[in-house]
Design a protein around this nucleic acid. Structure first.
Lengths: 147, 147
DNA sequence: ATAAACCCTAAACCTAGGTTTATAGCAACG
DNA sequence: CGTTGCTATAAACCTAGGTTTAGGGTTTAT
């Protein structure tokens, strides 16, 4: 017999809550999930494949309405293949920009950590405080430190 | 004379809106920004340095309350250097996990794009649809395609 | 056959991170 | 000196992405 999964099993497998799956269904992300006579959702293996894709898009910051658009295209058969590809290519660009952004900011954080790891860090930070204070003073403004 | 900047200039430089700067100030992210006699914010060069750091932390997903904590530590002088360093090290780990997550999911997206770029894509997708439909049918469930 | 565990929907609620609106005080230009 | 533009605060409003609650069926284990 073909295996099926309950909503609880799916939630555990993808580290989602049952509520989140309900929410995704209501948002039109799970049109492929069927229900049994009792009205319970019945998840098949291919449903899990779709949900894996949904999580992948979600984890890379795609908004729910765009994921819905992608899934809707998938449900429309082979005629939408080119559209799906373009949608994913555009998303790939977005991911690449996120990666670039993270790389740049990671460098800044690393730079600060390095500074905080220097043997002369106390002197350096004290010097910075002195500079800021002097800059403010020259303008007749109060120092922001030790409030 | 030491240069200063208006809120508008700061907003433009960091690609924020004036409202966002007001909001950040209200959230305690800008305790270092002084005001002139008229109550206008006066931004110095070192204020811009702090704001640069704030944007860097924000762009890597640090929540506002954590940024506020970091800034508060900065305002308390050299005694908090170790705490600041630990805070940034923890954040660096979070960035690294985000990078790992993006890398993995990017691979999946690439894999899908490759599939959609195959010469036999139409046959492959049709086969997938057939498989899903058969799997559902075996369970007495309807096919989700072409709704 | 009944308690415990599980599933359903609908609707209210929540949080983060802003944005908008209303009202009013300065500033700079012609 | 008035008009236009910039700035301020407070408070209401907004959006995304869920979460919680309420009320009610279903399934499973004892």
């Amino acid at each position: 017999m073909t295996q099926t999964y309950t909503i609880k099993e799916v939630a555990e497998r993808f580290d989602l809550t049952i509520s989140t799956i309900h929410y995704y269904d209501k948002q039109g992300l799970l049109p492929f999930v069927a229900k049994n006579e009792a009205g319970y959702r019945v998840f098949t293996q291919s449903d899990l494949n779709f949900i894996h894709t949904i999580c992948c898009l979600k984890n890379t910051g795609m908004p729910i309405k765009d994921i819905r658009h992608y899934i809707t295209l998938c449900m429309q058969g082979t005629s939408t293949i080119e559209k799906r590809k373009l949608l994913l290519l555009a998303h790939k660009e977005k991911i690449a920009r996120q990666q670039q952004q993270l790389r740049e900011n990671m460098q800044e954080v690393d730079f600060k950590i390095d500074r905080y790891s220097s043997v002369a860090v106390k002197e350096e930070v004290a010097g910075e405080i002195a500079f800021v204070t002097q800059e403010k003073k020259a303008l007749g403004l109060p120092s922001p430190f030790r409030q």
